[in-house]
Design a binder for these strands. Structure first.
Lengths: 204, 204
DNA sequence: TAAGATAGAAAGTGCCCGCTTTCTATCTTG
DNA sequence: CAAGATAGAAAGCGGGCACTTTCTATCTTA
């Protein structure tokens, strides 16, 4: 399995394969090494691809990052679709655990690294905001679907659910830097109850 | 005012003056250029100080960042002390606006840049976590003082208030990258009401 | 006030970065 | 199957980075 026999593959397939390896490695690097540490060399080493190969498919480092943001955005959409959550059927505990799990995942760490970099990098921001926004879009869609409301009527709920997402997104960073297990345990309890109280009213 | 006459200053005063200039410039750079863009050259240019001068006082770039984190932590503590907030007297709207304002401030942006970098930089994390944690400490202290409860009894309130802080911390990034004014306006309203409902119970 | 210590400026130094160049291997198409 | 196109490897290149060295100016102290 080390060097597979020279299987005959179409050019498109070869291209897609190395692009996938590059994007996967980029997401891993962002999660483990941060935006700063995600160098072309680090990406290529992890992907098992030469730098020349990478630059054949992506003209600049920024384009690699932007493509990774797109991939992460799609991944987030799929995660929510796969969870197939119905807030009224499942209750809010599952939602809270789902959001917290996603926020603490490596993929989301990569998403966050790009978000933070985009704040101070105008070009990256313009190029990547669509892909990054898909995480927000995923939750908005979840609201409409899960509550069986139109987009306008779902907005009050969306504000609340997005706020919970922001809460766990920011918490996930502090967990690593100066974790406070007692507070985190209380938070997940409180968030569940709070959603029941705040969204229960809307559910009528 | 361009080149002030060679006023006679003690060595300690000169030292303190350039250190202050360096730390101020570092915080500005972190806020405007991000962690990546906060190079020694950028810091020194903004501070009006040579690189040799900087390295006389801080052995490495990391030490500059750590010192900046300490300064930001102290600044956050002072911000909360200066606000002199009493939740029961002032109501929750002022708290929500205070937190949102702080989270959107340049100083807090610098804090966040260091937090994010600390996630993937072990040495930075160990050296800076104490300073960074002062933001959390400031809110915890606010809880105990503002609600007139002991530390143990204040913890349920602390969980809620810290959660609101996390919410606006994460929101502040998305505001820059793909702002959604409608949701942000609703969020500040909702957060105020939610705190009244959730903390009103505890207040008894 | 002389001698040593500290602060600061200016010009390096080596390294790693994103990216390019060059060349070979594999695939497509007439 | 020949000829051109595409994919990929390997080495190289300029530039910016953190940090050092060297030298001068200012302060401290005996």
């Amino acid at each position: 399995m080390r060097t597979e026999p020279p299987t005959r593959r179409t050019q498109a397939a070869r291209r897609e394969a190395t692009c996938a390896k590059v994007l996967g490695a980029t997401i891993e690097c962002l999660a483990e090494l941060g935006y700063f540490g995600t160098s072309i060399a680090a990406i290529c080493e992890r992907a098992g691809v030469s730098q020349g190969a990478l630059f054949r498919h992506y003209p600049t480092r920024r384009d690699v990052i932007v493509a990774a943001a797109e991939a992460i955005g799609r991944h987030h959409l799929e995660s929510f679709a796969a969870a197939d959550l119905d807030l009224r059927r499942d209750g809010y505990r599952r939602f809270v655990e789902l959001i917290r799990g996603i926020c603490r995942s490596p993929t989301h760490a990569a998403w966050r690294e790009i978000m933070i970099a985009a704040r101070t990098d105008d070009g990256l921001r313009e190029a990547a905001s669509a892909g990054l926004g898909r995480f927000e879009a995923a939750i908005l869609e979840l609201c409409a679907r899960s509550l069986g409301l139109g987009e306008a009527a779902a907005q009050p709920a969306a504000v609340i659910l997005l706020s919970v997402m922001h809460m766990f997104d920011s918490e996930a960073v502090t967990v690593v830097v100066y974790g406070n297990a007692a507070i985190e345990a209380r938070r997940i309890e409180w968030a569940t109850g709070m959603l029941e109280r705040e969204l229960g009213v809307l559910g009528n």
